[in-house]
Write a protein that binds this DNA or RNA. Structure first.
Lengths: 216, 216
DNA sequence: GGAAGTTGTCAACGGTGTTGACATCGCGTC
DNA sequence: GACGCGATGTCAACACCGTTGACAACTTCC
């Protein structure tokens, strides 16, 4: 009888996910890895979803530490990049926002940090809340989309993007003139780069919305 | 022997998903609904993923029709709202961007439309591609996140949001001052409203990025 | 009419999350 | 120290899932 705790299980799960990838992760594989009966896990977590949420929160540990203080944009930007990185690595993202609000410690710290930055920047309550939702939606949503590809080796990712560009360039220019013309420009850089661009633009848009007294 | 076609299967699948929700949808349930052996579906689709993609593309039919022409922002905004609505209704969103680029007819039309609008607005090739990715990432990601809740009745959704606000307001103000203070302002309006706000702010941010010659 | 290819049917494989009955362990109490 | 009880690990099993291969029925073409 191996003694288990929530912490032990979560730590083991993170290792297993790192080895076999989020898609292949299952309760049975986890049980095998910790050399215990898979169903023993259900003594510590009500369901796999609850386990995934715990994993997700663990991977967010320290995500609000030592954020840049140069500006609120730089701070939120860096925070979102970290959140995204944490969420890409494991499947908890799916259950992160799924049917449950940020109840866990680290998730709450994220909410608190973002709201604090926005308030300090001059956003009123309503505007801060709206901006918070927009930022989180982009960050978590982006991670959810990019996650499947992110778990593959980077060489494979590059090959995939190259293939997609080639698909676009092969389109009928009569039907899809712009898509065909811009084929070579699509999927520029890494997915991380594209996210950084998006969050930058969103933050820029938030400062000029007229719904808050925020001034840059 | 009931004669099946891809079209019949996709139509039936959409009905079934509407009845039992995206989460409960399975090949077996679909087979039951069309009164045929579940495995017959595999004569027309290589895998469930391929079926889901076909469903996704079907639900995007007509999404680029009659878009507002008042401005490129209004056009893209409306298009994204429609895409989101289509994706919320079925689970194809997960496989939409998952491991495959927009290869289907309607998906390509979306790409073409957005790129065309951006180019006409003065974005150069690189800037148009970047902006396209940012917009799609937010739109599809947002749908992916909101989908689980969107499949429930609106009364239940409202109750859920109310519960979450109450959770936030119960937080320790010493640890989470801003989250506690803004509890009542969080989750304002509907998820659709929040998305509309986010896409508005992103589009606003795209016009002021300095990476294009775009002028409003 | 016969051959060939397409498509529906059936049984089965290997996997999943989860549950209930049973056994075993650790710990507090008499 | 013995007892009892609750917490926890083990095992078998349930009800699903996506998918495959062998077979049969049907359609189409020569």
């Amino acid at each position: 009888m191996a003694r288990l705790t929530r912490d032990i299980i979560v730590s083991a799960a993170i290792i297993v996910i790192g080895e076999i990838g989020p898609e292949q992760f299952s309760v049975r594989r986890l049980g095998e890895a910790i050399d215990a009966d898979p169903t023993a896990i259900y003594r510590h977590f009500r369901s796999k979803d609850e386990l995934l949420r715990a994993i997700g929160d663990r991977s967010l540990a320290g995500v609000v530490d030592n954020l840049p203080k140069s500006s609120w944009q730089a701070c939120i930007r860096e925070l979102c990049i970290r959140i995204r990185a944490a969420n890409l690595a494991n499947p908890a993202l799916a259950s992160l926002v799924r049917g449950a609000p940020p109840r866990h410690e680290n998730e709450l710290l994220i909410t608190e940090t973002i709201l604090g930055q926005l308030r300090a920047a001059g956003f009123d309550r309503s505007a801060a809340a709206q901006a918070y939702h927009a930022v989180i939606e982009l960050t978590v949503g982006s991670a959810a989309i990019d996650s499947p590809l992110a778990s593959r080796p980077s060489s494979e990712r590059d090959a995939t993007y190259a293939q997609w560009r080639s698909d676009y360039s092969a389109l009928d220019p009569a039907k899809f003139p712009h898509a065909a013309e811009l084929a070579a420009s699509l999927y520029p850089g890494t997915a991380d780069d594209r996210f950084a661009f998006a969050i930058d633009r969103l933050l820029a848009g938030l400062t000029r919305d007229g719904t808050s007294g925020a001034v840059v």
